[in-house]
Design a binder for these strands. Structure first.
Lengths: 115, 115
DNA sequence: CTGCCATATTCATATGTTTTAATATAACAC
DNA sequence: GTGTTATATTAAAACATATGAATATGGCAG
């Protein structure tokens, strides 16, 4: 992968995140970068939900919901708990809530122009 | 793509982001989910930088830096301005700064386990 | 014009992600 | 045990993204 380490030949911006921190952050962020996963997280913000609820709420197929929950879990973003035949998911990564709030706050990217 | 629209059969979490908002947010977020792009944005947080500065700072190849800047620009996250033979980039998407701060605040994802 | 520097683009290949359909498992009721 | 509901896993096809090498462009100096 392209290097990404902070080298010396630069004016030094504030504190410079370490490469491994960036790499792990990128993994988590990338995982948030999918509409369905955002939707799932949004539904989990107010607390635990069973998979079937998430399915209904998102309108996505069973397999898709399960797989995307799996990928969120693999990164430690959510966790699950089985209760009888249901499996309940919940958010375990507090960062996520900040990011969702962030999306809500600005809502539209607003790429009209720039300046 | 899997549906993702908020349907009715659900308890209604706060206000439910609309699907197109989610989709655009996901695009921007996905674009942030790459170590080099995070590094570039980090360097741009304190203001404009020429491409060669970003190259030096990130340690990535010329082509990589240019391409990743291109993809950030394509999503309206950064913008550029030419001055003679240099091209200066700057952040145009304020959301990004919040997200970078968010990363800095928590630093490590802390995925001790998960099951 | 030529040559040079900074940047961008293109192309091929490699790699990863998403989706779908099918199948598997787990818990329960009977 | 069988049947049913809820969830997970798997495998293949489709699609998207990343990387590296090579080449192209844009602006400037001379």
């Amino acid at each position: 992968m392209s290097d990404t380490r902070p080298q010396s030949t630069h004016g030094a911006a504030s504190v410079a995140l370490e490469s491994d921190v960036l790499a792990r952050a990128a993994e988590v962020i990338k995982c948030l970068g999918h509409p369905l996963r955002l939707r799932l997280l949004e539904s989990l913000e107010t607390g635990e939900r069973a998979v079937w609820e998430l399915q209904e709420y998102s309108g996505a197929t069973q397999a898709a919901v399960s797989q995307h929950l799996g990928s969120l879990r693999a990164r430690g973003i959510v966790d699950s708990r089985r209760e009888g035949t249901n499996v309940f998911y919940r958010i375990t990564e507090p960062k996520v809530t900040s990011i969702l709030n962030c999306i809500r706050r600005y809502d539209l990217p607003d790429r009209s122009e720039a300046t």
